[in-house]
Structure formats: C-alpha cells, structure tokens
Design a protein around this nucleic acid. Structure first.
Lengths: 196, 196, 196, 196
DNA sequence: GATGAATGAGACTTCATTCAT
DNA sequence: GATGAATGAAGTCTCATTCAT
C-alpha cells in the first residue's frame, strides 16, 4: 500500500501489513473453531507473535469487532437500501433473515453481534452500534407507517436474534430461528381488525 | 493423606449429606460466578475433596442438572397447574414469564436451561427434558383451542427464551426479554378476522 | 447389594465365593487392559466392593500371584514332565518357548512373572518361586549332562525372558523374543570341539 | 499472578538457560525417582513454571530424549570408534557392556533406551534411532566377517538389553545382565568346526 | 514495534487406599 | 466380613496475559 521500496532498509516494521494478516488469520480461525478459539492459534496462522496480536487488539473483543466490521458494514448498507425500497415490514423481516444468514455462514460472527447487542460494552458503540441503528431505522419506518408496534426497539430485536443464534449447535437451528423471528415480527405487526 | 481436620471428625459415611453440601456449594458458587465457575471453587466451598464431587457428579452438566433440578421441577409443576386452570394463551404467557423470573433470580440456572434446550445432549432427555414437554403441553392446549399457530414447538420456544436470557448482562434485560417474549406470543396467536 | 431375601437366612457371607469372583474378574480385566489395570475396574467386573478386594488381596502383587498361580503351577508341572523325558537342552528350550507362549496368551501374566523374577519381593518366594526352581532343575540336568555351561542360573534366565517380554508392544515381538531366547540357549550350550 | 520471587529478577528471555535448567533438573529427578517421576517435581527442582517445561518439551518422551541425547550420542560415537578398530565380536560385546554401564549409572536412562527400542514410537526415529543403527553396524561387520549369525538384528539386540535392564531392582543385577548378554553373544557366534 | 518465552491458574481426570457403617 | 463413600495427591494439558529483549 505504502512506499514499497525504501533502499532495502529494514523492511519497515509494517504495522498495517501485520494488522491485515492478523485479521485474515482470525477470520479463518474463528470460522474453523468458532469464537473462543485460542488466540495462539490465530497468531500461529498469521505467522506472527502473540505480542503483536495484543498490541493491535488489546482484547479479544476488539479483535472480533475488527474482523467482522466489514461484514457488519455490508449488512448495514443492505438495511439502508432495503429500507428505501420496500414495504416496511417486509424490509424488516428480510433484513433479520439476512442477519441469520450471515451468522449461519460465518461461524465466529455471533461473537461480534453479541458485542453489538451488549449496550454495556464501550466498544459496542463504535462500528457495531450501527447494527442497532439500522434496526432502529427499519423499525421507525414501519412504526411511522402504522404497521408495527412501537414498544420494541432495535437493541431488543438484536438481542432476540443474537440470543437465538447463540444456540446454534443443534441441527436445523437456522430454520427454527427463522420461524421464531418470523413469529416475532408477526407479533410486532399491528392487528388490523376485520370490522369496518 | 492423613485427615487434616481432626476438629470435625470423619462425620459419617453419609453420602447424602455430602451430596447436599455439594449441591448447596455449587448453587452458591454458580450464583456468585456464573456457570463455568471453577469446580475447585465448588469443593472448596463445600469443604470436600474434588474426588467426591466427581463421584457424585461425573460431569459439569450432571452437576448443573442436579443443582437446578428442583427449581425446574417446581417450574414444571407450575406449568401443569396453570395449564389445567386458565386461559391457554395466558397460561403459556405466564409460564414463560415464570421462566424468565427463575433465570433472573438464579444466575447459574441459564446453564441448566441451555442443557434442556440442547437436543443433542444425552443428559437433556432426563429431568430437563421435562421443561420442553411442559411447553409442548401448554402449546398443545392452546393449539387445540384454536388459539395459537401450530408451527412452533416447545423446543423452539425454549430456545427463544434461553437464548435471550443468555445475554443478561445489560441493565433492564429482564424487562426487554419479557417484552420480546410477549411479542412472540402475540405472534403465535391466531388472528381473528372480524367478519365472516 | 444388600441381601434381598432375609427370610431365607443371610446367604452366608461366602468369603470363598467372593475370592473366586475376584480372581475371575481380575483375570479378565488384566487380560483386557494389562497389569496396571485399575483395581476399581476389577471390582466393578466382579460386582463387589473395593474393600472386599483389599481384604482378600492386600496388595496388587498378591492379586497377581493368586490370579496366575494356577497357570504357573501348570507351567511348572510341564517343566517337571519335560525334564524327565527328553534331551535336556531341548527340554530347556521347549520350556522357555512355553513361557513365552503363556505370556503371549495372557496379557497380565507378565506381571506375575516379574514378581517371580524379583528376588527382592517377599511374595515371590511363595508360588512364583517355583518357576525359578523349575528352571534351576532343567538347567541342572543339562549341566550334569555336560551340555550347558554352569554360570547362568534359573533366576537369571527368568530375568532374561521376563525382561524381553515386557517390551511386547511392537508387532512381531514374540518371534523376536523366541529368536533371542534360542540364541541365548545356543550360547549356553557347551561347544563341542571338532576333534575326534 | 505477580512475580513471587523479587530476589532473582526476571532473569532474561534466555530460553536457552531455562532449557538447560530443565534438562539438569530432569536428569536429577529422573536419577532420583526413575522415569515416571512427576513432571511437576522437575519444574519445582528447576524453579520454573510447568508451562515452560511444556513449551520446551511437549511430551514426556521429548524430555527423555533431550535429557539423554548427549549420553546416547557419546555411546553411539563410542560404537563407531570401536567398530573401526577391533575384532568385530569383541567390539559388539564391549559396546553392549558399555550400554549396560550407562544404564547402571543413569537411573532414568532406561526410559530413553526403551524409546529407542520402541519401533512404534515416532520419536524413536530421531536421535535414539541411532542406537539401533549403531548396533546394526556392529552386527553387520561381524556378519560380514563370517563371525556371527545373521538372524538377529540390532533392534532385537536392543530389545534384549533394554528388557533385561528394566528389571534392575535386585542387587547384583548388572553382573547378571552382563553375563546374560555375554551368553547371548556367544550364541550369536558362528560355531567353528574343529577340522577342515 | 515486534517478539515469543515465561508463567501459573485451573480444568479435567484417575486411582490407591482408608475407614465408618 | 462386606461395603463403597471419601479423599486428595498427582498427572495431563491448555491458555490468556505479561514483559524483557
């Protein structure tokens, strides 16, 4: 990325390169072993020292966040787009489905979402907080359209999805969670009485 | 090798007493530190040897189950009673509220419910399986009365509650979870169209 | 576990029966897991209490000895017979082969022989000492016939066989040990000079 | 958690020094207690943490090998020298005597030789495998000279020595084993008929 | 900045042995 | 005599985290 050829000099302690290597390694290892994988396994994969990992990511959580930030940003963008174009309830539903899909695909990801759902965490405010905001926006639109109730907020909805996805060990979990979330959205919808 | 505590005599071969001591200690320690507390801390609290713990409870899961079995049985009994006496949807709702209350009170308990929710676990079939059955029964009654949909089963409902309760770190979590579960039950309810 | 039918008198605390049960169980377990098997496994197999095992056989060695005493006695008898009937060197060789066969067949047996080979052990003097004596007798006959050297005694020969058989983990060990023992016997034989 | 020994400072990242300390401690402890000594005893002796031991020597076997590697290398060198200079049978005999002497001196050593004798062990191939090769070389020379039979190989000879030395508890064992090995070598020697 | 050695807590487990009932 | 609960030492191994170089 940066000046590739200093006269040879010490290969320049390229911190950025190491950071990337660590992220790539972590993504791989988390996907393989899940969150809670040994940090040693990550640095082994990256071919770097454990100290370097700690310098870049002082906590395991910081690593989670960095690893999945891009995925989360994509998801958020998706939410924004959907929000603009579709029926508000369908948009909300679709976006929640997308979240479940992401968790199903990226094994370590749930940890990042758990961070996002943790309002206590100082770190959550940063990139992951965007997820909550995206949900809030989707909800707000649906509420404004008089389509869903207003007593559940984005943080809570996130809590629901993340919690259910944490127990993803049994076979068929994705179908179950999807059904549950659909039911939850049904519950959110304002009931239209049939009478004139 | 030699009994280091001459003061309190070798009490008696009273296995039952020790078992109780272990359960009490475990309850305390789990409540203090959460599940995942050191088993060593448990025996230290109980004033017994680690071997004794292993004799009575060969796995951590067996200990969870035993520690919370009574609570779970009470909950199940409560479900049966409620089931007999009340409006089926209200009974279901109340029982889910009771579950949340139990988790709110007993910090380590969620681990026992997680076991119950884990259909993979061999141990779950035993006492904890009763929770699923209780839910199934409550659901069945409501379905039979034409009040709720039939596409969600007890296992899934348990998954929802347990999952949400796993993220109980933030303040106000109980209110949030209760609200979410209420919404979920709303979603389960069959919508009655006003006119033929 | 406790006498289920008090009406028909206590079934007589048949110590002898228990002893037999323990021996049978131990034989089985040693054969399955080798010496060093857990004594608990033995009593589990026997359906008795660990205390009972300790009453009958205060040490693991005592158990070895009792379990294999009969086998050893048979072997000793075999030695006596062979000794009477055959060429002394062939008799010695055959008997050593028989020992190896026994070890090959009965996995836990080597421990009993090790006891026999251990001149230090107080217990060895008893039944297992007979093995040494049998070897001494076979050697003595061959020495008397001027067929083998007199500087190796039965204890040492036993040491050789037992030691080699202790490393019986690699495939083909029996053939190797047999070859080695044959070579050893060759070395014992007095060389006959070619002169008339 | 906190450095409990302020007196001796955090010495240096000198891994080599610690490695040496561990080897020295292990040598001492094995000599005192035999192989199978507690690894904890080793680190206690070395004044280091158990983790450090595991970092340097991931398995007990790796430790054996490292502790005795130098001794084994010396022995192997000795074999090479002897092989070049002397009567092949005498060279073989002397080398076997040297092996017995080494075992007699270093109590834990037999474990390292047992590794060498274990053709199954992956680790044996490394430095300890050299022992087998040395024996093979000595044998080959004697065979080539028409002095010994060719049906016993180095692995088997090693098995014989190691096996016999495993039972080194009785007094006078070294003399017995030496005598046995001498007899074995005698058995290996080709018998020369007296007349042309 | 980078490194990785050091550390020790602690998880989990197995057993031999004792001894109260 | 029989029982088996109790005990705790010991052993295995894994990690997160610190810090000297």
């Amino acid at each position: 990325m940066e000046t590739p050829k200093p006269p040879e000099r010490k290969p320049r302690s390229d911190a950025a390169r190491n950071r990337e290597r660590l992220l790539a390694a972590a993504k791989l290892v988390f996907a393989r072993t899940g969150p809670g994988a040994s940090l040693d396994a990550v640095v082994r994969e990256a071919g770097l020292g454990i100290g370097t990992l700690y310098r870049h990511f002082p906590t395991r959580e910081a690593l989670y966040e960095a690893v999945y930030r891009r995925d989360i940003e994509q998801l958020v963008t998706l939410g924004a787009d959907a929000s603009a174009a579709r029926d508000p309830v369908a948009a909300l539903r679709d976006w929640l489905h997308a979240m479940i899909d992401v968790v199903a695909t990226k094994k370590g990801m749930i940890a990042a979402f758990a961070l996002a759902a943790d309002t206590t965490s100082a770190i959550s405010a940063r990139s992951t907080g965007a997820v909550t905001q995206a949900l809030d926006r989707l909800l707000a639109r649906a509420v404004a359209a008089g389509r869903v109730r207003s007593d559940i907020d984005g943080t809570e909805l996130l809590l629901a999805v993340v919690g259910m996805c944490m127990l993803r060990d049994q076979p068929g979990w994705q179908a179950s969670v999807t059904r549950l979330i659909d039911t939850l959205v049904d519950g959110l919808e304002v009931r239209r009485t049939g009478a004139p």
